[in-house]
Write a protein that binds this DNA or RNA. Structure first.
Lengths: 350, 350
DNA sequence: CCTTGTGTAGAAAGCGCTTGCTGCGACGCG
DNA sequence: CGCGTCGCAGCAAGCGCTTTCTACACAAGG
């Protein structure tokens, strides 16, 4: 039924071993023999059996990429960049590897299950993207899993994620969410804002906490009051931004600025403000985070912090493939860049 | 070093066969034995070797999803929906399957290579999303590949893609791009527009052609002139929309509407119009296609055709898993819904 | 009491590939 | 001219799992 290595060997009049070596190209084979084998492969339309070869060689060419939400460009951009570097077809790298993008939906259990599944497949590498959940039990479970993966020879890279315990040997490229949050709020303070609402992400995520910490640090540094009622938690989506903004407006109609957890949330905030008859930035300024492609198309264009997602992803991909050295200590912090655009301005009555 | 089935068997005092059967649950095993085995698995922290089991059972639990651009929510949404149905962790389905999202970048070669890679992995199913390339040679090559995959027991589903030759046995869920394009243009004609620019996608894509055909059909049906100079081809991205719009404006400053290949392009068009000092929809109306989440956040909100991406993806996923019957004839056409919003209005001087 | 079933576990034969080791000409050097 | 080398190909032993077929024990039926 299906063509096997042996069939190719028979047709090329060589042993299966030789065919294998031609295909893997890691052993001297005479040019004439190689050619004969290659022709046989072609004639028979032979396709290597991945599982069999993975079993025999005890390695596989699968690379796992864990994302929280594949429909979110934040992850899509990183995943695309990672994939282009791990040498899927068309990537720069040589060997063809299959990138497995796994959508955890932000669920800790799924994250763990996917890690097990990847361990089961003996993945060559695993890249975890996005913020982690701040649950100790889960963090421990993940760390344990990562340790096992590393022990089994899988390279583990965290991209846009806080470092795992050092003994996991996982490389981490972390975004400076705290610093970014601080820059944003300082920008608003410099413009004269004093009553700023903050729409945070899900409480248990590290990303949420770090960005919020940055915001508060900026407030504290400039002696600006920090009313807890001006912070609302929600999800990282538009709807959440919309609702949270209405809630903030209800609590404090005199807000002059809204700081959103990310650009998507900011868009929802903008919509809520407009629907409330408020102009941006004349009545209320809005800032986002991430600088996703659509942010520049918002009207007015969103002031935000640009995170080099593609660059970070590419780097993570290269490290995962062992084509770039890990940063010293296994940890690199990637800063964002403040992008001041039309959605922020001085408050009406300073 | 690594724990194998045999180790578990030894610890549970049973044969490897029994352990395998407990793990796969497709053979009667006495409750007491099962429990003993399960405990041993737990104690030893055993993880099944995927390749080995795939080899022995001649099946794998990998499901491939091919997308043109993973950073584009159009694909992200479909991929997410597919994945949630194929029973990855947390999905509704029982067995745990690994979804492999492959990013072709729109390249025909990569598409083919990924198909080979999936064939090599003996994937359980493959879902191809997005428009196909209209190159005969490539179409033939893909059809051949699909035929082989199907022959090898891989289920093949096309989602948002024109049907493959009937003898490939691939199920197709096709978007009615033609009809959608027609609705959009008819809407504009009904508003009184007569001079409409069209920003098409890459020339060789079926999606591009079908949408354009719909546009032209509407023009023809209503006796509206169709100046070839009013159609510009570009890529499916914002930049392209921006530049094409400027070009259209140069060619015909009297345009009263711009029809974009998709929402992303439409956003670029809006930006170009604004930068040219034109108001939307007062001076120029704009329509997109797809109704991606951000389209409602454009200012003014985009008139577009809503494609049920998540629903289509979910259905494709179920069909791929054999949990839903294929549509009669293996082909289903999915219509879009015209969403009239703020970006379209009557032309200034009718 | 022996036969026929029924339910459960084991033995063993692969699945298709990789790779360490062996084998065998040919070549070069003393 | 003989022997050590080198280059290349083959042998065969697995890799870790699934699954068919066989084996056994016990229950029920004639």
């Amino acid at each position: 039924m299906t063509v096997t290595l042996a069939d190719v060997a028979a047709r090329a009049q060589v042993s299966p071993a030789t065919v294998s070596r031609v295909l893997n190209g890691n052993y001297p084979v005479a040019a004439s023999t190689r050619e004969r084998v290659l022709r046989a492969v072609d004639d028979l339309d032979y396709v290597l059996n991945g599982p069999a070869s993975a079993l025999a060689a005890a390695t596989s060419d699968l690379v796992g990429i864990l994302v929280n939400d594949i429909a979110d460009p934040f992850f899509g951009i990183m995943a695309g960049a990672i994939q282009s570097e791990i040498g899927g077809p068309g990537g720069r790298a040589g060997g063809e590897r299959l990138a497995v993008v796994c959508n955890t939906g932000g669920s800790p259990e799924r994250e763990l299950t996917y890690l097990t599944l990847l361990q089961r497949q003996r993945a060559a590498a695993v890249v975890l993207t996005g913020g982690a959940v701040e649950d100790t039990a889960h963090a421990t479970a993940v760390a344990t899993k990562l340790r096992k993966l590393v022990a089994a020879g899988t390279r583990v890279v965290l991209c846009g994620r806080p470092p795992a315990p050092a003994d996991t040997d996982a490389v981490a490229l972390t975004f400076d969410n705290r610093g970014g949050g601080q820059q944003l709020t300082e920008h608003l303070i410099a413009l004269g804002h004093r009553r700023m609402g903050y729409i945070a992400g899900p409480e248990e995520r590290t990303t949420t906490r770090h960005r919020l910490e940055g915001h508060r640090a900026a407030l504290a540094a400039h002696g600006v009051a920090d009313d807890p009622a001006w912070t609302v938690h929600g999800r990282y989506d538009r709807r959440s931004g919309y609702e949270a903004t209405l809630e903030l407006l209800r609590r404090e109609p005199g807000l002059t600025a809204v700081v959103a957890a990310n650009d998507t949330v900011a868009l929802g905030a903008c919509a809520a403000l407009r629907d409330s008859g408020l102009r941006i930035p004349d009545d209320v300024s809005v800032v986002g985070f991430d600088d996703l492609p659509f942010s520049i198309d918002a009207v007015p264009a969103l002031t935000t912090v640009r995170l080099p997602l593609a660059e970070a992803g590419a780097r993570a991909g290269r490290i995962a493939m062992g084509r770039e050295e890990a940063p010293p200590g296994g940890i690199a912090t990637i800063r964002g860049e403040l992008m001041v655009r039309g959605s922020t301005g001085a408050p009406k009555e300073a």
